[in-house]
Every structure is written in C-alpha cells, then in structure tokens.
Simulated scan of single mutants.
Amino acid sequence: MRKSIDGLCAVVEDQLHMDPRRSALYLFCGKRCDRIKALLWEPDGFVLLYKRMEVQGRFRWPRNQLEVKQLT
C-alpha cells in the first residue's frame, strides 16, 4: 500500500495491460485486506481514495479469477 498515483498507474498498465485513463475504477487491497486504495480518472486528473478499517474486520477480496465480480 505504499504506491501513490503514478505507481498504481504503472501497475494498471504493466500488470493489467489496461489504460488507467479510461472510465474505470481500479481497486487495490493490502496484504491484510484491512485497507484499500481506489484509483479513478476524471477529465481533469486522477482521484486517489484510501480506506482503512478501524473496526475489526476485513474486505472480502477475490483470491482467484472465478471470484472476480464486475461492478456496475
């Protein structure tokens, strides 16, 4: 969870083979699944959101391709 906007854009381009400037929301999760970052492109620049769970709990994160869901 150390990457900022430029680092996350590089992950989207290099590992996902996608354009970070297209109309999509990219979510990134930490190892403990208690923090997420969201990267979103708007016409005037990127938005980076960060959420950390303060209560005991974790985000449910897909562990393989079959668990991946498309958000609408």
Rank of each mutant, 00 (worst) to 15 (best):
C9V: 04
E42I: 04
F28I: 03
K31E: 12
F28R: 00
R52I: 06
Y26P: 00
A10P: 03
H17R: 12
Y26K: 02
Y26Q: 02
V11P: 05
M18E: 12
R35M: 11
E54T: 08
R22L: 08
R52Q: 10
Q15D: 14
R32P: 05
V12P: 00
V47P: 00
Y50G: 02
F28T: 01
C29T: 13
L49C: 09
L25S: 07
R22P: 00
L25R: 09
L39F: 09
K51G: 02
L39G: 01
P20L: 09
R35A: 14
K31W: 12
L39K: 02
R21C: 06
S23Q: 15
W41E: 02
D34N: 13
W41P: 00
L48A: 10
G45V: 04
E42Q: 14
L25V: 08
R32K: 15
V11N: 05
D6N: 15
Q15H: 14
R35I: 13
S23H: 15
L40N: 09
A10R: 11
E13M: 06
C29W: 06
Q15I: 08
F46R: 00
D34I: 05
L48R: 04
Y26A: 01
V47T: 10
I36K: 10
C29F: 11
E13V: 03
K51I: 07
F28W: 06
Y26C: 01
L27M: 14
S23E: 15
R52P: 00
R52N: 03
K51V: 07
E13A: 06
E13F: 03
V12S: 01
D44K: 15
R32T: 15
P43I: 09
R21P: 01
L49E: 03
H17N: 10
V12T: 06
K31H: 15
M53V: 11
D14R: 06
I5V: 13
D34P: 02
Y26E: 02
V11R: 03
C9G: 06
M53P: 03
K31Q: 13
R22D: 04
K37F: 11
L8A: 03
F28N: 00
R21N: 07
R32W: 14
L40K: 10
W41I: 04
R32G: 13
L39A: 04
L48V: 04
F46Y: 12
Q15F: 14
L8D: 01
D44A: 14
D44Q: 15
C9H: 02
K51T: 05
L8M: 04
V12F: 02
K31N: 12
P20Q: 11
F28A: 01
A24P: 01
